[in-house]
Design a protein around this nucleic acid. Sequence first.
DNA 1: AGTACCACCTGACGGC
DNA 2: TGCCGTCAGGTGGTAC
Length: 261
Amino acid sequence: MPELPEVEMARMYLQATILLQPIRAVAVLDERILFGVSAKALELSLAGKQFISIQRHGKRLFLRLQDDLWLTLHLGLTGRLVYLQAQEDEPRHTRLLVSFQNDCSLAFDDPRIFGEVGLTKSPSILLAERKIGPDALQLSLDSFLEIMRGRRGVIKAMLLNQGLVAGLGNLYADESLFQAGICPRSRGLDEKELVALFSSIQAVLKTALSTGANLANLPDSYLLPHRHEAGTCPWDGSQLKHEKIGGRTSYYCPKHQKIVG
DNA sequence: AGTACCACCTGACGGC
DNA sequence: TGCCGTCAGGTGGTAC
């Protein structure tokens, strides 16, 4: 599920549900979800407090508890957040359950346990520790050029590298390259190509957000609705190709996405 | 710096 | 029906 648009939806969801509610208790249902904190410490840190604001950077969420204490969440590949009404059953793979004094609760459901829950004194500390680059939607064109210029790696792999730019995952990286007409195998893009790519990334992420990160509602001119074995390019009808690039399955149009650089 | 590969997990799906 | 391999919208470590 979660690339930048999905995580931003999750942020808005939390914003609308859990703010300013006193926390009654925290249950860690599977300790493998924890990163750098014990279940005991997490429970003690949260009990009696409340979330006062929610931030997102790339694919990470930061839930502020007080000035120098934040709960950090990463949804991994299969994580989702569900706000439960009193008495409502939690999802099957709930790994963390935060219950509030009003009897509602927040479940972090994550079948594959690639997600992560932790604590930090500030988002910037965690971002530095984990070497996360600037958020894809807060990034200026100049910073993007600065980051990408002079690198020799395969462009698809670079877009997936959260240390360079944070927020793009496999799907939106494919979509951005599709919109920019650049083959994912390209490397050493020139200034003009990087500018086009930057503008595609911005447009793709904003469009995805405007659909509520619902892939089914993306424009038909986008790659993603056609991104499957038998899919054809919505621009020119070519049979889409797919192959492993940078270790991930990549779809692209062999006709209009050129190898550049 | 860049890449290939493995590992962490579970569920869904296609083939036999 | 049941087993098995394969794949999946993420990330980190290692070795070259």
